[in-house]
């Protein structure tokens, strides 16, 4: 069973939290905003949507988008380890994600494997580690699946606090270093010649990618985190605009998709992460069609 908490919308939450009778399935938006779980979901979703979209534009431009999928799947091993040891799974997932992203980067830099092969190797090792841990523990029932598919409507205060702190770290890094990161992304050799400390900034960027993936796990889940990072950037790039307009569009698309996904999934009682991805894909298709027509 995937579990009502992991995959369902408001009704699942109401039932699992024993709130039946307190919230009507036809509750208005204003009523919903009064509930702690909904506030947590919106705040956590906005933090993750903002961070993912911003970092996603750089990853897409650097042609490193699939590193997200690889690291996220590797984080599955970290989640399983956390559940086994009784530690917050997001903390162990963060540790494993950092090891994974630096492992992929090291393999590329040392010429041990091309980017896609290095990602595939890390993905396989991380995911199989998770499977072994699950079999040793005899299964974790619903908890593990909430990390696989996301459970934004059930994030706790402590989860939210961690997501907000990580989100602040990511946004601070990008606010301070986005110009240098842009110069490196456009022309790494040129950036080195200009005296920009490329290695130090890329090391920090790798760390930030691992943090971004970890904070998104509770929001959208390991399987679909790549969508939250890639699709807003891909959509904004269709606009063929300046960097300032592209990054603004990317973030707005990310935020709008997350909020719309939470709303729609709440009112129609369907899986939140699925609706978020479908919202993003819809915006992508409409944007692409309009951009092509405008050519």
């Amino acid at each position: 069973m995937i579990g009502a908490v992991g995959a369902a919308g408001l009704n699942g939450i109401i039932e699992s939290a024993g709130l039946t009778g307190f919230i009507s399935p036809s509750a208005s938006l204003v009523e919903l905003l009064g509930y702690q779980f909904f506030q947590n979901a919106i705040l956590g979703g906005l933090a993750a949507g903002f961070a993912c979209a911003w970092i996603g534009l750089f990853l897409v431009l650097r042609r490193e988008a699939m590193i997200v999928d690889g690291v996220a799947h590797t984080a599955f091993g970290g989640v399983a380890l956390g559940l086994l040891l009784g530690i917050d799974p997001l903390i162990t997932a963060l540790g494993i994600s950092i090891v994974s992203v630096f492992g992929i980067s090291h393999m590329k830099r040392k010429g041990l494997a091309e980017s896609d092969s290095a990602i595939a190797l890390m993905l396989a090792v991380g995911f199989s580690t998770g499977l072994i841990i699950i079999s040793i523990a005899g299964g974790f029932s619903v908890d593990l699946f909430s990390y696989l598919f996301g459970s934004i409507l059930t994030i706790s205060r402590s989860d939210l606090l961690m997501i907000l702190v990580l989100g602040m770290v990511i946004i601070s890094f990008l606010t301070i270093f986005h110009k240098e990161l842009l110069a490196i992304t456009f022309d790494e050799r040129g950036a080195r010649m200009m005296g920009i400390p490329v290695n130090a900034i890329l090391t920090m960027f790798n760390l930030i990618v691992a943090i971004t993936i970890t904070l998104s796990i509770k929001i959208i889940g390991i399987i679909l985190v790549v969508a939250l990072i890639v699709i807003p950037a891909l959509t904004a790039l269709q606009l063929r605009a300046s960097f300032a307009k592209t990054i603004t569009s990317t973030v707005l698309i990310g935020l709008a998709s997350v909020v719309a996904g939470i709303m729609v999934s709440t009112f129609y009682n369907v899986a939140t992460s699925g609706v978020i991805v479908f919202t993003m894909v819809l915006i992508y298709l409409v944007t692409t069609a309009l951009a092509r027509r405008g050519k």
């Binding site: 842009l182 110069a183 456009f186 950036a191 400390p197 605009a241 300046s242 592209t246």
Partner: peptide, 19 residues
């Protein structure tokens, strides 16, 4: 996704101007 003005502005970056 860079305008001409944005690209030229990147020339103002350097070791002593990080962040």
């Amino acid at each position: 996704p860079l305008s001409v003005r944005e690209l030229v502005s990147l020339g103002r970056l350097g070791r002593k101007k990080i962040g």
